[in-house]
């Protein structure tokens, strides 16, 4: 990882854009998952999707948000993060991490149209 040794998770990771190994945007860091270790809490994964950000909004927004978008969420293991700078870079393709699937689906559908 080429990131600095000290990382401010709130400032440098949360709500930042995630970019896969091909440089394609595949979501935002909607939440961060920790795991208990003998040395204290450690980052386990980045969480992406409605299931992640629903916990961060006012209750009414959360209820409406869940009704509209569901509660799916993708967990991106911390080991896949290779750089924390302007964006969070991963070492795998979005599809392999189950990210950006809806965009891929919409893209396949649009590809049927001319000059898409």
């Amino acid at each position: 990882m080429t990131s600095p040794r000290r990382i401010d998770l709130l400032r440098d990771v949360l709500d930042h854009e995630i970019v896969d190994a091909d440089g394609i945007a595949c979501g935002m860091v909607d939440d961060i998952e920790f795991v208990a270790t003998p040395n204290g809490p450690a980052v386990a994964a980045l969480l992406v999707g409605p299931g992640a950000w629903l916990t961060r909004v006012p209750s009414l927004v959360a209820v409406i948000g869940e009704w509209l978008f569901g509660r799916s969420r993708v967990s991106v293991p911390w080991e896949h993060v290779v750089d924390i700078s302007e964006v969070i870079r991963l070492d795998a393709k979005a599809a392999d991490l189950r990210l950006g699937r809806l965009d891929a689906k919409v893209g396949r559908w649009l590809a049927k149209l001319p000059m898409s």
Partner: peptide, 18 residues
Amino acid sequence: AGWPWGKYKKPREAGRFS
């Protein structure tokens, strides 16, 4: 939302944006 975006991209490369 962190979707791929851009008018310079083909519509299928930025599905939800399109």
